[in-house]
Design a protein around this nucleic acid. Structure first.
Lengths: 135, 135
DNA sequence: GTTTATGCAAATTCTTTGCAATACT
DNA sequence: AGTATTGCAAAGAATTTGCATAAAC
């Protein structure tokens, strides 16, 4: 039940080629993808604008989440089931050499106590360095 | 010794109006600033391009660091002295209501052990929620 | 048949580059 | 004087919007 089709159905979105292909990209490559990555790998199969709108739709429906990046490009990754239930804690590792960002689901974030009056809704930890492939 | 002037001298940069004013903005507002924030608060006192180049110079000289943000805009904050000595660990809090991002220097990041072959160089934790002013 | 998504064109915004004039040391 | 910075113009990316056509339900 982790097919592109079932994911779309689960989020009650219309089934279109563009949406299916974009989800398949996320499923096959296990890294965070930017708009430009999708545009390139889908090889002009769909309009640039359609990809922007698809990502926006997915974001609104909590099908993907933004992945922080210091390069300026906005990157996205599929939400896991838990995240879809509003557990928003992400740990990502970005390799400075190959530029790839991967989710480190195995690592849990410790509880952090904030100053008075601050309410936490989401935590994002980005670790930058060199990945195993590049070191 | 925390004046705009001394900061520039410490980094061996030429003293110019634009650089002084931008550092003063960072010193007075205690939040992370994007290019657009500076452009607005400096009220066209300097060219848009000059602000871009000044931020780039500051970044190269480790006078400011990038602050992660999910809005797409690149934000910057002054480096503290320790950070200038290449201790790159940042905890930031972004309020979803007012949009302001503040440094939480008091909070230390726990040590995180990465999978084999991964080398850590920098860690950024962004906590999003509601700040004390907005709650 | 009604609603929603797509493609195309065009407008905006964001960022970078080249070059001559100016300011800094 | 010599070098680095600025402003202006213009180019190049990234992102958004409007609208008619096409596809999904």
């Amino acid at each position: 039940m982790n097919s592109a089709l079932s994911i779309l159905k689960h989020h009650k979105l219309r089934i279109t080629d563009c949406r299916l292909e974009i989800i398949r990209e996320f499923l096959s490559k296990q890294v965070a993808l930017a708009h430009s990555d999708l545009e390139e790998s889908l090889n002009s199969q769909f309009d640039r604008v359609t990809i922007y709108r698809t990502l926006k739709t997915f974001l609104d429906q909590d099908l993907v989440h933004k992945v922080l990046d210091d390069s300026g490009a906005t990157k996205y990754a599929l939400c896991s089931h838990e995240e879809a239930d509003h557990n928003h804690e992400h740990v990502h590792f970005k390799c400075e050499k190959c530029g790839e960002t991967t989710c480190l689901d195995a690592i849990a974030l410790p509880k952090i106590s904030l100053p008075k009056g601050f309410k936490k809704q989401e935590m994002n930890l980005l670790i930058q360095g060199t990945c195993s492939k590049c070191s």
